[in-house]
């Protein structure tokens, strides 16, 4: 494994890839701490901390993912190089995945040490954030690859996210449940939780594969303005 290329791609992914998820989580933690200190109760702070992990972090990851796919000032040069452009975008998304994982793990561990219970505990807590983050980020990457528009994609991602928050009761119905991102924070980690998480992970992988298929003809990303 060549480390240098990863360092370059981390830089190309942009500071947002490395900073947006931790910033979102830090902000949530700060608000939770404020709630706790203001005496509003341990439980309310815990709910917010959980929502940060399951809802806020995935949203920021998805926004970064779509930027990684859409934004590239040297697209034409990349397409002329022997390294597959798909591999380059994959590396950048990989950097995003790694930084997200690191932040979420630290956040979850910190919360646990502070006496908050976020999800089922143990290794399964991973799925509280990993499943919705993978699904939403892969969805964002696919829409970005197809539309080549950051504005369109971010609007659509925000819309889905908001719709699932507002109509949570609709999304818990069996038909839509595999698409429900916020099961842990809205329903809990009881029956149906594991299936929902597996459903999200599987859906995320399918979306990722579809993204790769679209990017396999990367000249689609060349817009006419590039001509």
């Amino acid at each position: 494994m060549r480390l240098t290329i990863w360092l370059h791609e981390a830089r190309r992914a942009g500071p947002a890839a490395l900073l947006a998820p931790p910033a979102a989580l830090l902000l949530t933690a700060a608000i939770a701490m404020f709630i706790q200190l203001s005496g509003a109760g341990h439980e309310r702070a815990e709910r917010l901390l959980l929502a940060g992990l399951e809802a806020v972090a995935p949203l920021s990851v998805a926004m970064v993912a779509l930027t990684i796919v859409v934004r590239e000032t040297c697209r034409e040069l990349h397409l002329s190089l022997p390294t597959l452009h798909l591999a380059t975008i994959g590396r950048r998304l990989g950097v995003l995945g790694a930084s997200t994982a690191a932040c979420c793990l630290i956040y979850a561990a910190g919360a646990w040490l502070a006496g908050y219970r976020l999800g089922p505990g143990g290794a399964a807590t991973l799925l509280v954030w990993a499943a919705p983050a993978l699904w939403l980020a892969a969805f964002a990457a696919l829409v970005a690859a197809v539309t080549r528009s950051a504005v369109l994609t971010s609007s659509l991602v925000a819309l889905i996210w908001l719709a699932e928050q507002i109509w949570a009761t609709v999304f818990v119905t069996p038909a839509l449940r595999p698409l429900f991102l916020f099961f842990t924070s809205r329903v809990g980690d009881g029956p149906g939780w594991a299936a929902n998480r597996i459903g999200l992970l599987a859906g995320g992988l399918v979306l990722l594969a579809a993204t790769a298929a679209v990017l396999h003809r990367p000249e689609r990303l060349l817009t006419e303005e590039d001509a």
């Binding site: 370059h8 000032t73 040297c74 040069l77 990349h78 002329s80 190089l81 022997p82 380059t88």
Partner: peptide, 30 residues
């Protein structure tokens, strides 16, 4: 592409890099 050098009509560069860093990156991709 392994034996090609290509200068597109519109070559966007990465403004945050120095020429040395930019060439290092392209070299790796080559």
């Amino acid at each position: 592409q392994r034996r090609l050098g290509y200068l597109p009509q519109e070559l966007g560069l990465y403004p945050d890099l120095t020429p040395t860093e930019f060439l290092d990156y392209v070299g790796l991709l080559k």
